[in-house]
Amino acid sequence: MSHPLLEIRDLHVAVDGKPILKGVNLTINRGEIHALMGRNGSGKSTLAATLMGHPRYEVTRGEVLFEGQNLLEMEVDERARAGVFLAFQYPVAIPGVSVANFLRSALKSLREEEMSAREFRNALKEEFKALHMPDSFASRYVNEGFSGGEKKRLEIVQMGMIKPKLAILDETDSGLDIDGVRIVSENVNRIAGQDTGVLLITHYQRILRYIRPHFVHVMVGGRIIRSGDESLAHELEQRGYDWLLQEAGAEEKELQEVG
């Protein structure tokens, strides 16, 4: 296939009329891991929600192509069926709906051929095991009464069941302790394998020790102001964001010309 997995071109997004993203450009190919870093409020989660199709985020300019198809024209569930997955920063509770029931229905919608009940149960069991969660979670209500870390792990259980083409992980590391970060990371690597594109949103460097990105991007003020390889993340850890911010002013013009 000639199309990249995901192409974001000059994306502008507003929430309640207020511009948040101001011209994002990013291309992700199959099998690539991209880390998107930046401070709170820089627009990282807005990008994640926009790619998944949250109704509150209004695209005012630009385009997003997923395998060459116009992603922005698709409904949320169509995007999921196309292969986009978002691991939520704040997964919501669905009272009265068990994890198993929810995932069973989700897989029914996502897959052409149906899994047998036994296949499904076994696969779910495996995922729980991999995430170091007791499989009693299958009968618990989705995210209800879960700790922050359990919610994050359940997102990765879902990713493992769904096996998306593009996984957007929105601060999956926050709320996890150090073991949690490691376990979640190992599983993301396992599930992603060679073919999945990953957009890993974080403001800490620690998860990047386990999930090693091919590319690192830094977002400031709704734009990617710097892209590089893994070394950029190390540099950020040592020097913080401030030096980038100072340089950003100088580079802004240049970036716009390139973009």
Partner: peptide, 13 residues
């Protein structure tokens, strides 16, 4: 809206 978005992001209409 958040519940709907969450479920739909997993492929449910």
């Amino acid at each position: 809206e958040e519940q709907l978005f969450y479920l739909m992001s997993r492929g449910l209409s």
